[in-house]
Write a protein that binds this DNA or RNA. Structure first.
Length: 575
RNA sequence: CGGGGUGUAGCGCAGCCUGGUUAGCGCGCGUGCCUUGGGAGCACGAGGCCGCCGGUUCAAAUCCGGCCACCCCGACCA
């Protein structure tokens, strides 16, 4: 038994009021529950309760990684700048990388991630295909000097992360490593008791062939998940495709003509002014990359997806053009661009434009639009493609079902790196034929601290946190109530000891507090089960077992408390 | 980085505009009494570089300047 997990001695400074600087629910609750305290912007201390929850997640991750054949290491957090120069990221990484110099004026940085260190480690000691595959991971504090840390543990600068790296002899072998991690991640988040989706993510122009994100579903999530309601297709917003609707036979379209639209430059304005639905407007977006300007046509009610255009054009930087560029390209001011008569610029159109029929578009002159514009008749595009964000109700690209949008919190990311780092840093091996080849790498991250926050975003009510049992800092809290009563106190000690003896982590609220205070704190800190020991039930030799989630209370014999908890634990995870 | 906001007791806040005794309130904390099934009550008490530096003034939490810290917002416009 553990004699020290007693509230009278345990450092859990709970708060009655929300801290002024907390915005999201997980941040507020973790502060109020005495789990974390802020040291400075984006940097938090973990108090015993918070650290216990964090370690629960860590341990689940550790077990699943080990099970998948990965090996745990621990890499330095302080890294020499020269390694980053070698990989080419010293110049590229930007201000997120916290750099500093040592006393000898040599460059160093705090590790935001460990591709360089791990690649350096492996290249020194692994030379043969006989030693591959190799999968190494660590659980460690990362530091990223975020522009704007926010939302407590959700987007901190210092945070706990599991990062893993696989090394393989071939692309095919790397795919095996990748899928092992994919399965391990599914196990991790399922074991944590979270509702999540694994989604396809954009891998970027250099990122290799594919990438997946693991998203915990929560309305307060920063990211949007697009998922099919029929099949298991799911992707993040940047990546999500949608089925192409069959082109509708173009309605009879009168001759194109110009109308005055004074001051109406936004879709909303034009739509109202001309009394035309946004679906019949053509948005003409002028973008600019390092290769010059490009025009993209999007249906009025759709939203541009910059990443898709970027990938299509295979450019590095792409953003909305400034107003001067727009005037140069279209001859008209911002807000009145249109495809008709555009010259000297590549014209891309989203699939939906093909079936728009009869549309309204900017006239490329101030305060004027064109109506009865017919694609194909009145203008020609250079290329058609998928350039927009998915919307709820769009057809699924796989099965034709309907897509739905969810909010999510990114807690895991799988990335097939390929040979990017092994090439740059010369991590090579000899294959069975004696030929030298670069290793094929993958990297795999899990935001441990963010997972705890995400779990709370997903599992709470007006009284506080509702921890899923697998990641709860304690499984049971024993709460003796009623004035100092030796019999009750002894019974509480007894139940507490019994639970520990059966491997059930238990907190005993032995404080000399009124029942209300104890109940409020127990609810706030979110322990899944509360065993209340009071006079009335005790008279019959019973205690109350209360489920934090359902709030249901049942009377059980004192002697049956342990099996009852075990039983309800199983019921919880079976849900 | 740009824009906005806030710094007063451990936490949450008032006071500042219109300068002037000993800087308040709620929670929390300590002691005592009382109370004991959903954050009780009474009494007494401890606790403050009013973010920092400078200026104005007989006098600054309050006015002015600078600095620092923290919080919020920052493509959707074609």
């Amino acid at each position: 038994m553990n004699r020290f997990m007693k509230m009278s001695r345990f450092f859990v400074p709970t708060l009655k009021e929300d801290p002024a600087d907390a915005e999201v629910i997980s941040h507020k609750l973790m502060m109020r529950a005495g789990m974390i305290r802020k040291l400075t912007a984006g940097i938090y201390s973990y108090l015993p309760l918070g650290y216990r929850a964090l370690r629960k997640v860590e341990q689940i991750v550790r077990e699943e990684m080990d099970l998948a054949g990965a090996q745990e290491v621990f890499l330095p957090m302080v890294q020499p700048g020269e390694l980053w120069v070698e990989s080419g990221r010293w110049e590229v990484y930007g201000k997120e990388l916290l750099r500093f110099k040592d006393r000898h004026d040599r460059d160093y940085c705090l590790g935001p991630t460990h591709e360089e260190v791990i690649t350096d480690l492996v290249r020194r000691d692994v030379r043969s295909y006989r030693h591959l595959p190799l999968n190494l991971y660590q659980i460690q504090t990362k530091f990223r000097d975020e522009i704007r840390p926010r939302f407590g543990l959700m987007r901190g600068r210092e945070f706990m992360m599991k990062d893993g790296y696989s090394f393989d002899v071939s692309d095919k072998a790397a795919d095996v490593s990748y899928s092992l991690m994919w399965q391990a991640y599914k196990n991790v988040f399922a074991r944590c008791g979270l509702r999540f989706r694994a989604v396809e993510a954009d891998s970027g122009p250099i990122g290799g062939s594919f990438s997946h994100e693991f998203m915990v579903l929560a309305d307060t999530g920063e990211d949007t998940v697009v998922a099919c309601t029929f099949c298991d297709y799911a992707a993040n917003m940047e990546k999500a495709e949608m089925g192409v609707p069959a082109p509708v036979p173009s309605e009879t379209c009168g001759p194109m003509r110009r109308v005055d639209t004074p001051g109406a430059s936004t879709i909303e304005d034009v739509s109202k002014f001309l009394n035309v639905k946004p679906e019949h407007l053509i948005k003409t977006l002028i973008l600019r990359s390092e290769r010059g300007p490009v025009a993209v046509l999007i249906r009025g009610d759709h939203e541009l997806n910059l990443v898709k255009v970027k990938n299509h054009l295979n450019v590095m930087d792409l953003d909305f053009a400034d107003s001067r560029t727009i005037e140069e390209v279209t001859g008209g001011p911002l807000g009145f661009s249109g495809p008709v008569g555009l010259k000297n610029v590549d014209l891309l159109a989203d699939h939906a434009i093909r079936s728009i029929g009869c549309a309204v578009a900017g006239a490329n002159e101030k305060d004027a639009h064109l109506v009865d514009v017919n694609p194909g008749r009145d203008f020609h595009v250079d290329r058609t493609g998928d350039f927009r964000c998915a919307m709820g109700g769009d057809p699924c690209p796989r099965c034709g079902g309907k897509l739905q949008l969810f909010r999510g919190i990114e807690v895991g990311h799988l990335f097939k790196l390929g040979e990017k780092y092994s090439e740059a840093m010369n991590a090579r091996f000899l294959d069975a034929e004696g030929a030298e080849k670069p290793m094929v790498m993958g990297c795999y991250g899990i935001g441990i601290s963010r997972t705890v926050a995400a779990a709370i975003e997903q599992n709470h009510d007006e009284d506080g946190i509702i921890f899923p049992p697998p990641i709860a800092p304690f499984t049971v809290i024993v709460t003796p109530v009623g004035a100092k009563d030796t019999e009750i106190e002894e019974a509480a000690e007894h139940v507490y000891a019994e639970l520990w003896a059966n491997g059930i982590e238990t907190l005993l609220d032995d404080r000399d507090e009124r029942p209300g205070v104890k109940f409020k704190d127990a609810d706030l800190i979110g322990i899944p089960f509360r065993i209340t020991i009071g006079k009335k039930a005790m008279a019959q030799g019973k205690v109350e077992l209360r489920n934090r989630k359902t709030k249901k209370v049942e009377l059980v014999d004192i002697s049956a408390a342990v099996p009852a908890v075990k039983d309800r634990l199983e019921a919880w995870s079976a849900e």
